[in-house]
Write a protein that binds this DNA or RNA. Structure first.
Lengths: 250, 250
DNA sequence: GACGGCGTTTGGTAATACTGAACACTTATA
DNA sequence: TATAAGTGTTCAGTATTACCAAACGCCGTC
């Protein structure tokens, strides 16, 4: 595992690939070279190789590059291998229908929530793809409920990191958060009181694997006025009962 | 664009990445080295670099590698950039509900259909993720209806390729297919009479971009007995009318 | 206990990826 | 209109480094 057993040019190339984002889906050699402090021509060679292999596509209008459809296929293999989405989707649909709220399914990936799927109470309703989106653990319902059931050392690593305040409601004091996690464990579910986004409240329930460790969570969320204490308890109960057959079996 | 302006080590590394598939989601250095005719230690270095960057994960049980969650994020960016899934999903939900059949949405990618999304008539119904799956053009409803509206030279390139018979119903004679495409253009929709999978029939309608070129298609499919001639015409009409607002606007 | 499989480590050399400058081109400023 | 600053692209030389090959330790089986 020594550093010189790594292919440095590949690591550099992957850095280039990671410059592409939702905010900046199209980039040229100069932009990337500036972002990474690399040579323009070096970036160019990397880009044109990715293009030749189908991972990047060149926009002939702008001469810039964007991520190609080939990466979708890789994502498909991942999903198929994990199989989580397919396994959970029918349950998520039921949760959205019975709570009449938008339902989210996310898994624990390092110190972030990785969103896998969302479902909606009505089929006609406008929806959007969230696969691949990420959010912090400490300020989202999904994240906090996973944090509450994670090993202490992992929790401390998260709490000792930067706790950015996304809204005025975000809990950024590690001590307050520790007490809050204790309360979540008592309740068996977490709430998100507009800690990540203004006006959005949510209720989240953990999902445990066969080894008894939390690895995912399911939430319903919506406009804050709808989420009074009674609704929250009721929704948590609905989610828990629907997810029951999936607990401790993966 | 000469071949030596490419980063060869990157191209090799991407070859390694492409060895992973739905059928073989977990691979070790020896297996990959055999598949590609490369040196075992070379592959090992590439694998461990991908691992360090998060694109591969090592299974500690087997010491083999599998695709990590990071590639999902790249897929998310692609989707967000293209935005097709989000744009089409509400319409696909309506199509599934009104035809009471499973609805598929695929786009043209080279000489294949790339499936983007599927929707189901009932929300509770079991469903599966198809994003990233691919199928040939000449023997699927989605593929044939796109083929019917593609430029002649592209059609000929597909027809001159290998036309594998997936079932006894698959059309493998280029001349028969040419006539068949003419018929599809007359009808405005394509049918798939168990040409790709036994027992499955389907109806597919093309989607055109602002430049008037076909770039995607939508189909409904199901068990063959349900698809009598009358139902087919009716379903085609339903799909066309629901998709109407999306035609020629992308 | 020898063999064959695996993933991993190592050193030396031949391949090659990066540097840096120049190119052709567009856009915007003077 | 001329200049300047930006872009993507090309090219040669050099210093990096990625690959080859063999050996390692480990786990099975024969």
């Amino acid at each position: 595992m020594s550093d010189d057993s790594q292919v440095k040019s590949l690591a550099r190339a992957l850095q280039v690939l990671e410059c592409f984002s939702v905010e900046q889906p199209e980039l040229g050699p100069s932009e990337i070279a500036r972002m990474l402090g690399m040579q323009k021509s070096t970036v160019y060679n990397i880009l044109s190789t990715f293009q030749k292999c189908g991972y990047l596509v060149k926009n002939p209008q702008t001469s810039k590059y964007y991520l190609g459809l080939k990466v979708l296929h890789l994502g498909y293999i991942v999903n198929s291998h994990h199989g989580l989405r397919d396994m959970f989707l029918p349950y998520l649909n039921r949760i959205a229908a019975e709570t009449r709220e938008v339902c989210y399914f996310g898994i624990l990936d390092g110190s972030e929530v990785l969103y896998i799927e969302s479902t909606y109470p009505s089929q006609q309703q406008q929806t959007r793809n969230i696969l691949g989106e990420r959010a912090p653990l400490y300020c989202t319902g999904l994240g906090k409920v996973m944090l509450a059931y994670m090993p202490e050392e992992d929790v401390e690593r998260v709490l000792s990191g930067r706790l950015k305040a996304y809204t005025g409601c975000t809990l950024t004091d590690p001590n307050v958060l520790r007490d809050h996690l204790e309360e979540i464990r008592r309740n068996g579910y977490a709430t998100d009181n507009m800690e990540h986004e203004y006006g959005i409240r949510c209720v989240a329930v953990p999902v445990f694997n066969a080894a008894g460790k939390v690895f995912a969570a399911v939430s319903v969320s919506g406009p804050s006025p709808r989420f009074d204490p009674e609704t929250i308890i009721n929704d948590a109960r609905i989610i828990s009962s629907i997810l029951q057959p999936l607990q401790h079996c993966i």
